[in-house]
Design a protein around this nucleic acid. Structure first.
Lengths: 146, 146
DNA sequence: TTAATAAAAGACATTTTTGTCTTTATTTTA
DNA sequence: TAAAATAAAGACAAAAATGTCTTTTATTAA
């Protein structure tokens, strides 16, 4: 198990890639994205389609079309991507899978998990989609094997 | 997505239950366990079988048989359960699914994730299987819906 | 030594996740 | 207007996770 589903990992990598390539109105094609974040092209296509429907990224068909991000979209937190793809369980769910787990009826791990969840939430809501663009372009940071 | 697989959630709940019921050599049957941690009996059976093979819990066949824990087993960290069931990805894996992600070739989330992973590791290695027994018996803490 | 009890094991069945391939719709540009 | 480019959509396929049912094996106790 990882923290995010594979789908979500692909989504994060792809959106970071699109972000770093989004310069004044330019778009990136799915083939290029898939190649650069090392993910299956058609599967990624559906994921991005979905994110596009949900308004997290934008797309345009036809020649010079592709996926891109608006200036506002670059400022959005990556928690938007995570909850669009994986839902909110990571932010609010019980570590032991108990739907009734709460402050009043806690599971054994509740109190410790709360802290960890809060930490994760803070991290995901506190970092924006666009904030890694520079480092990505400089190669200080990677989206696939070097 | 949750942090642990469903299998692991069942495992944690079941082992906590067995722990709380383990008093001087007594054993707990799978039916009772399944009922009290709200999980499918046969499926849980296989999970516990596996944990037993791996030496995390003990079992005995025949009348008065069932699952139980030794005194040493009660002192073991719950990270043992987690890595037996879900593997070590949660402790060491990259948040974005990059196998090559490391200090030298970090993914965008690497540095922040490292902190979170360390926190999770600390929590799981720092809490023992038996440490909730009292609170479980007092009903201060739950393993299924109240 | 037989019957009862309980875990272990095996064989499937279902659901969810992940992945592929083909066709369609939209847009641009020549 | 026609051809080319590109995302969108649809229909499957494969793999993994989850769940169920049946049979076997070991143990106990009468």
């Amino acid at each position: 198990m990882s923290i995010f589903s594979k789908t979500c990992e692909y989504a994060l990598r792809a959106v970071f890639y699109i972000a770093s390539k989004t310069v004044d109105g330019s778009r990136v094609g799915i083939r290029e994205i898939a190649k650069n974040v090392d993910s299956p092209e058609h599967f990624l296509g559906k994921i991005l389609q979905d994110l596009s429907r949900k308004g997290i990224i934008d797309s345009a068909k036809g020649p010079n079309g592709g996926f891109f991000l608006t200036r506002q979209a670059l400022k959005r937190p990556i928690s938007d991507i995570v909850s669009a793809v994986d839902g909110d369980n990571i932010f609010t769910g019980c570590g032991m899978g108990l739907t009734y787990c709460s402050e009043i009826n806690p599971c054994p791990l509740h109190h410790e998990f709360k802290k960890i969840r809060n930490r994760i939430t803070k991290m995901l809501t506190g970092t924006t989609i666009g904030q890694f663009n520079k480092d990505l372009l400089l190669g200080k940071i990677l989206l696939k094997k070097p």
